[in-house]
Design a protein around this nucleic acid. Structure first.
Lengths: 231, 231
DNA sequence: ATTCGTCAAGAACATTGTTCGTTAGCACAT
DNA sequence: ATGTGCTAACGAACAATGTTCTTGACGAAT
């Protein structure tokens, strides 16, 4: 590990400058950049996150980050994988409950940080935490007696599903649902009678809706819980 | 309801009449702009689509488009809704087959045009074609005896689901699968034995995989097809 | 003491979405 | 015919983005 103490100031750009007199800044690290990115994402959402914003938050210029990251997509991928470290495996319980717990945790990690879910939708997650979760889910599905092909395709599907739901949920709780409500309010009851009749239900449901959605996909993948077939 | 982090208004009630007849250039229309946008999207993908590119393709400047569209999000929304006009209702058959046919058609519309699926992920489709499809799906679910709450939540879920699958598919076929393939190739069989064993299956499956995914979600929502409960 | 590799930073480049101000043609009242 | 207002169309500009080029300063090896 190399220790670099100096820091570049934003002021005094004209003459030759001795960087030793500047106040010390912690050296840049990839972990620090990723952490600061997650911080900004939590504070300002995905639209507020940019390379330059992370750079200025670290009191440096945008070019400095390219020493540690090849491009913005890599930062996104690292941020996602870092956040996914919070998705841990439940130790005990029936496999179906453990499967649902893992998916729920995955969903919550994405929902709790505004902007992370839409970021995850556009990012191919291939980091260590992603692989760890894949391994976990594959094990749980195989433990539940799901055949190999359904398990392989199912893990992909489950993660995609949970990510998409999180993206939708995070925007539902995260503010501007106004346009949707307006569109539903102005709806013609004669042209769209079914939507009109269901307009209250369409926007209803908080956490309950997430549980319902998880049960739907698990039922579809492995069958209903109790009276169905048992492995 | 799906994904409105940007919701461009489709409502621009004042009719606009173009004035470019004289200089031998075809007059600008909202439909023409949307059509050209879809054309560029098909040719160059989502990253190749920008307001300025559409403008230059129409032989004008970027500011001219703002007469017909409030912003880029509105163009996206109009493009999506225009493409969704191809999703039609099958006339006959059992309701379950018709439901699946609609969803399949929806998915294919998004998959067949490169870039449309990722665009759909970031766009609220509140146009007439979207509403028409919502109405269609609500009717099919009610015809199948699904209770009101599950139908309302289910339509949202189904559209989200097929959109996400289409987006992933286009990400998989269109762009670089490089990182994933590299990660799978370098995978340690001892650290990730299950992923290693399933690595061939993970990337397998073409059209069959889409049908499988649709059956999974429909089974989860309304139960398995034949010997299950009947309404 | 000199060289070399590496981390950091400033400046610049090409693009992006969007807005401002202006022009030019039409409809209509005078 | 003349003038007035409205508005589509456009050129230019602005702020912000990701990325690259180039330079510079330090630590370590020679």
């Amino acid at each position: 590990m190399v220790f670099v103490w100096y820091c570049g100031g934003m002021e005094q750009n004209r003459p030759v400058i001795s960087r030793r007199n500047r106040p010390a800044k912690p050296p840049l690290t990839r972990e620090g950049i990723v952490a600061k990115g997650l911080e900004i994402l939590a504070a300002e959402g995905l639209s507020g996150l940019s390379l330059r914003r992370v750079a200025t938050a670290l009191d440096t210029g945008p070019a400095s980050l390219y020493v540690y990251l090849p491009n913005l997509g890599a930062l996104h991928a690292e941020m996602l994988d870092a956040a996914l470290s919070a998705v841990t495996a439940p130790a005990v319980g029936p496999w179906r409950e453990r499967l649902k717990a893992v998916l729920w945790r995955y969903m919550m990690v994405l929902i709790e940080r505004p902007g992370l879910a839409p970021l995850a939708l556009g990012t191919l997650a291939s980091g260590p935490n992603s692989l760890r979760i894949w391994e976990m889910l594959l094990g749980l599905l195989q433990e539940g007696g799901v055949d190999a092909k359904s398990a392989a395709w199912g893990v992909d599907l489950l993660i995609l599903y949970v990510t998409a739901i999180a993206a939708e949920q995070s925007l539902r709780s995260g503010g501007d649902l106004g346009p949707v409500e307006a569109a539903l309010a102005q709806l013609s009851p004669t042209v769209y009678p079914l939507i009109f009749a269901a307009r209250a239900l369409l926007l209803s449901g908080g956490e309950e809706r997430g549980h319902w959605a998880l049960n739907v996909i698990i039922d579809g993948l492995v069958g209903p819980p109790d009276p169905g077939r048992t492995a």
